[in-house]
Nucleic acid binder design. Structure first.
Ligand SMILES: NC(=O)c1ccc[n+]([C@@H]2O[C@H](COP(=O)([O-])OP(=O)(O)OC[C@H]3O[C@@H](n4cnc5c(N)ncnc54)[C@H](O)[C@@H]3O)[C@@H](O)[C@H]2O)c1
Ligand SMILES: NC(=O)c1ccc[n+]([C@@H]2O[C@H](COP(=O)([O-])OP(=O)(O)OC[C@H]3O[C@@H](n4cnc5c(N)ncnc54)[C@H](O)[C@@H]3O)[C@@H](O)[C@H]2O)c1
Lengths: 217, 217
DNA sequence: AAGAAGCTGTGAACTTTTTCACAGATAGCA
DNA sequence: TGCTATCTGTGAAAAAGTTCACAGCTTCTT
């Protein structure tokens, strides 16, 4: 079974945001920050920020707050795999290519190293400095390049099949953009990004704004 | 007064998924479904499905479960604005265009009707049957076309400014893809889709999977 | 006609997550 | 030095969300 769930998924998500905000501040020369300032930037509350930092064992000073550079480094070393994480994208369509373009060269510890597709016109081409490969090479590539993360951007009706192939190849974390729920073994971490639902949620709360007020996310 | 029974954000998100699953089933001629079946499809539990449907006042039958067509229609009428919801996208870059391509013609009650950009090469062009307009026309377009929803796909450093413009124009719901937290009035519903965080969460949980169990299932 | 099976609807229990509220720490200042 | 202001760290309370467990309904079987 799962051994240690020390830090909750929600906290991990917020830590990801904090470190992004912190590196922006660092670039501007900012040295210290209080929990309530990070809270404002991140859209949360001060106690929540303090709880999150407590979860990774980080301590600030009552008068100076937190040291930007040091905290940033602490979150990095808590979250990043020191050897780096390598991922692949399956489905080099509109969304897949947008994601590849965006993540190219952005984080040294998290790289997308190849794309896979089943369209003969795409196979063999290069997308954002990554080769676009035939699905037949999925398993060997995952093994040879030490890939642990897969991004699924194929149409909904192919997503389960692709998920199965990724797991079979040895991937243990999947980011799924297809609008269905994948059925995969419990030792594989799956994050579903459901853009249709996100859009429909906004549409719903827009509508209900008309007669009453609703808190934001 | 309090007319509308408050339905949580999480329930709304699941209802969006249920109706998508239901329309797939409907297309296959399926007539009835039990809560535990919908639970399996949606990755949830049977009591949760029943609670969610209870929230919109829908009742099934103890022997037949829920009627697919009828339930689907009930969720539609609960979630959709009968007059339809119109949205615009600001930032016709890689992600913005992928989203426009995807949502084109997909839902009759939820349409993206225009794009906006500040790049002179894009302004005046047509993207997925939508005009790409100059930001100068944002306010008048929102008013004239009765637009209530805005999607933000501009770079992070322009997102707050664009959010302010959207709110000023009269939009009351925003789907934000820029990797920052927007600061907007509380009557505006904002959904943040943070793809960087999603990716980093998977990377984190991949890493922590390593030491627990190795045997694939 | 009565019993068995298996479903829904839901109060209550439980779990997770967030917020409150305050002791203790640190710096600035008179 | 001692007072004031304001921060952090955290136990405790509250809120939100999920699951349990079972009464009651409906159909099927015998
Ligand atoms: N683009 C969006 O904004 C958006 C929004 C919501 C959901 N999605 C979902 O994201 C996914 C991708 O969307 P898109 O707009 O990029 O679609 P797309 O059609 O542009 O791209 C799909 C790609 O997958 C490839 N493909 C198809 N079957 C394959 C297989 N079996 N193995 C490998 N590759 C295969 C196709 O060749 C194509 O390149 C879809 O599931 C879609 O429902 C996208
Ligand atoms: N593409 C992804 O996978 C991805 C992942 C994570 C986050 N994001 C975020 O989504 C947003 C869009 O990403 P992208 O990859 O599409 O970027 P992009 O650079 O391809 O597109 C940005 C578009 O916004 C337009 N723009 C810039 N400033 C503007 C302004 N002030 N008003 C109107 N239009 C303006 C540009 O002309 C361009 O067309 C960014 O904030 C990015 O951080 C994207």
């Amino acid at each position: 079974m799962e051994t240690r769930e020390l830090v909750s998924e929600k906290t991990i998500g917020r830590l990801s945001l904090y470190r992004r905000l912190l590196s922006g501040l660092l670039a501007k020369g900012r040295q210290n920050i209080y929990s309530h300032e990070l809270a404002t930037l991140s859209g949360g509350t001060a106690p929540q920020v303090r709880r999150d930092l407590m979860a990774i064992g980080y301590s600030g000073s009552p008068s100076k707050g937190y040291e930007v550079a040091d905290l940033s480094e602490s979150i990095n070393s808590f979250m990043d795999n020191p050897d780096g994480t390598r991922g692949i994208i399956v489905g080099a369509g509109n969304l897949g290519r947008a994601i590849m373009a965006y993540f190219e060269g952005r984080r040294p510890k998290l790289k997308i190293v190849a794309a896979f597709d089943n369209d003969p016109n795409k196979i063999g081409s290069e997308i954002c400095n990554c080769p676009c490969c035939d699905m037949a090479y999925l398993k060997t590539t995952v093994a040879q390049m030490g890939i642990s993360l897969g991004v699924i951007t194929v149409p909904a009706n192919r997503a389960q099949e692709v998920g199965d192939k990724l797991v079979d190849a040895g991937v243990t974390g999947i980011l799924n953009f297809a609008p269905i729920r994948l059925h995969l073994p419990p030792n594989v971490y799956v994050e579903h990004v459901d853009l249709t639902t996100s859009m429909e949620k906004v549409a719903y709360f827009v509508q209900s704004n008309k007669d009453s007020d609703v808190a934001g996310a």
